[in-house]
Write a protein that binds this DNA or RNA. Structure first.
Lengths: 213, 213
DNA sequence: CTTAATATTGAATGAACATTCAATAAATAT
DNA sequence: ATATTTATTGAATGTTCATTCAATATTAAG
């Protein structure tokens, strides 16, 4: 064995480690989805995955490491699922705004992602600076992606696309927050239309564009 | 017994009960603010208030009752603090839109209210139908209040004020969600301006008003 | 093949948890 | 004044918690 400071784990062992860590975090996420983050204990994760709790602690020294890893997992997946949806619009000079708005509010990706765990973790930003920073990074990245898309269309050349991206996302995120409270499908669709129209208004509002500069 | 210093009104017991219950819920809220909802145990609430945990259970048979009462407390106070801020605009035919927007995004009320506990409880809407309904009721009430204010000004007579209130609040709530991630004061103010302008745009956008009808 | 490092197991730890209980104190009703 | 109801206390319950530990199995290195 070499004597460097770094723990060198070769081949198989490294793979085992990576796979176990992933398995544990995914199990943690799945369980939190079912019983709530506050009830997803290490013992329960072990039972859920059929491994002893001590194995979990072998990879994650304490609960905080587990939470940090869960948040990394959630934010990575949020971005991984969401960004391609708006990224692959293939803007050939002219952006299809209807299509963009449709994708921003798409419920498809919503089905792939559970909001309960996301907001439980979000609530942690108020007491943990590093979690706050991680959440901020995700939200900035989403805005930058949208900004880039807008910049590809010359129609927005005169507009402050950074501001526009901020304004669009604040509606999208406010809508997700609010619509989660609404069970009735008809009411849901009605309000969703309000917000889609609102974003379309932002994108088409050339008068405002000048006013805002 | 010597009761010379105390005035014993009839129904003293009821008063004791009400005050104890309030004390416990307020203590629960204060503690949750400090250590997080997930760490605010009954034992800790007892220690925080210098009462035995069994007294807490005398008034709240189990933890669920305590959570339900906390959410009632939070939502009532949210409304109690927030509504007067926008309600007492004293619309004398002409609404001061600048003033309205200023109040909607006022940081004052934000200081009176801790968002960590609010969002921790919000996360519960995804698994609890009655909590979801309670949150929805609050958000509908806020929108109705704003709608009433808009209706008092004849300038909005031709507009769909219900839709407008929905669109305004989705920005306000999206902004609160997003701005909580931002520590830097300058950046915070810059983005806050974006969102204030956005709401002003909604209020002044008469062209859109027709388009939306 | 031997040794060292890592992976996995299951049992054990003490602390914290929600909750119960019996006893006492205070307030109200009779 | 006495009886009844409610408020309060503190000790005790059994459970679950995160975490530790020693043992065994597997894999890598020499």
């Amino acid at each position: 064995m070499n004597s460097s400071f770094f723990i060198y784990i070769s081949g198989m062992k490294r793979k085992i480690r990576q796979e176990r860590e992933s398995e544990i975090i995914e199990g943690f996420y799945q369980l939190a989805k079912e019983v709530g983050l506050e009830n997803a204990s290490i013992a329960k994760i072990g039972k859920f995955l059929n491994i002893p709790p001590s194995l979990i602690m072998h990879y994650f020294p304490n609960r905080d490491f587990l939470i940090q890893a869960l948040i990394r997992y959630i934010l990575e997946h949020y971005q991984l699922i969401y960004e391609p949806i708006i990224e692959h619009l293939n803007v050939s000079h002219k952006l299809d705004v209807q299509e963009l708005v449709g994708r921003l509010f798409s419920r498809e990706w919503n089905l792939l992602f559970d909001d309960g765990v996301f907001y439980s973790c979000y609530a942690l930003i108020f007491r943990d600076k590093s979690i706050r920073a991680a959440y901020k990074n995700l939200h900035l990245a989403l805005r930058r992606t949208l900004e880039d898309i807008l910049n590809q269309d010359s129609a927005f050349a005169e507009m402050d696309t950074r501001q526009l991206a901020e304004q669009i996302y604040v509606v999208v995120e406010g809508a997700y927050y609010y619509l989660a409270m609404i069970d009735d499908e008809e009411e849901y669709q009605e309000k969703l239309q309000y917000f889609k129209k609102q974003v379309l208004g932002l994108l088409q509002d050339e008068v405002n564009a000048e006013f805002r500069r």
